[in-house]
Simulated assay, not measured.
Amino acid sequence: MYTFIKFGGSVITDKTGREAADLVVIERLAHAVAEARAADPNLALVLGHGSGSFGHHYAARYGVHRGIPLSADHTGFALTAAAALRLNRIVVDTLLAAQVPAVSFQPSASLQSTNGQIITWETAPIAEALQRRLVPVIHGDVAFDTAQGTAIISTEALLSFLALRSPLQPRRIILVGEAAVYTADPHRDPTAQPIPLINQENIAQVLVMTGGSRAADVTGGMRSKIELMWHLIERLPELEVTLIGPDPALLTAALLGQSLAMGTVIKRW
């Protein structure tokens, strides 16, 4: 059984800056993963991360997510891809330093999309890495798109594809970003309250309450993430999705299936 993790771009970088990696947070999260693997040697993990202030800046500037025609200048596409890879190298190197055998897999090297949706992706090498007790690391990336020329594929979309269209069906997905899903934007509304559980009884209400991202983000905000995760749960009824903040103790506990003091669990029932 597999566990997918996502390090949100907003927690491993300062998304209001430019290529501003939060090395302290990345290191703490890497050690939390290492601690969980040491406690449970059977953990099979796929780790993804957002691009934060690395890829999103260039994608928004050049409109990569809206599509670049074949005949147009694709410099922005190349700059976005390079920025995403720079952050990926930081994440992977930090995991390796924490004794996590991380291996980078660049999605755009083997992926194609249509209208921003993944059509094909060669995922067999990721499965091979898992068989060898390695930790594959993927990231939000650019893509060549058959309809609009170019696209941006979010980390959540990559994890969703792996969950539904590869043998790597997860039992758990852990999203490390905001401390929880809230009744309103907690950065703007001091009365916002965390929602500990989202299920079929309150999902419609939650989607009404959740909004977009505060900084440049070409993959959508909290609402789009919840919608995508709920779509996964509808297809995989046993799946549980946990949203937590960048607290290493919470990440280790979530990876080990322990109860959490803070966060939001999304599940069918």
Results as ranks from 00 to 15, higher is better:
Gly140Ile: 07
Pro136Tyr: 11
Ile68Gly: 03
His56Trp: 12
Ala216Glu: 14
Glu19Arg: 14
Pro190Phe: 12
Leu236Gly: 09
Ile153Met: 07
Leu243Asp: 09
Gly221Trp: 08
Ile233His: 05
Glu234Gly: 09
Ile5Asn: 05
Thr150Glu: 01
Phe105Arg: 00
Phe105Thr: 06
Ala216Tyr: 11
Thr120Glu: 12
Phe54Gln: 11
Leu251Ser: 03
Ala81Thr: 11
Leu96Met: 11
Tyr58Val: 07
Asp93Gln: 13
Lys6Cys: 00
Gln112Gly: 13
Leu134Gln: 15
Asp141Asn: 11
His187Cys: 06
Leu250Ser: 15
Asn202His: 11
Glu19Pro: 10
Lys6Arg: 12
Tyr58Ser: 12
Ser213Gly: 12
Leu47His: 05
Leu243Pro: 01
Thr210Ile: 07
Thr80Gly: 03
Lys6Ile: 01
Leu168Asp: 00
Gly211Pro: 06
Pro41Arg: 06
Thr94Asp: 08
Ser10Pro: 00
Ala38Leu: 13
Leu197Glu: 09
Met209Pro: 05
Ala157Phe: 02
Ile68Ser: 05
Gly63Val: 10
Val241Ile: 15
Ala98Met: 07
Gln205Arg: 14
Ile68Ala: 00
Ala127Gln: 12
Asp141Thr: 10
Leu228Asp: 08
Ala109Ile: 06
Ile12Pro: 00
Gly116Val: 04
Trp269His: 14
Val24Ala: 13
Ile152Lys: 02
Gln131Asn: 14
Gly63Ala: 11
Glu227Ala: 01
Tyr182Thr: 02
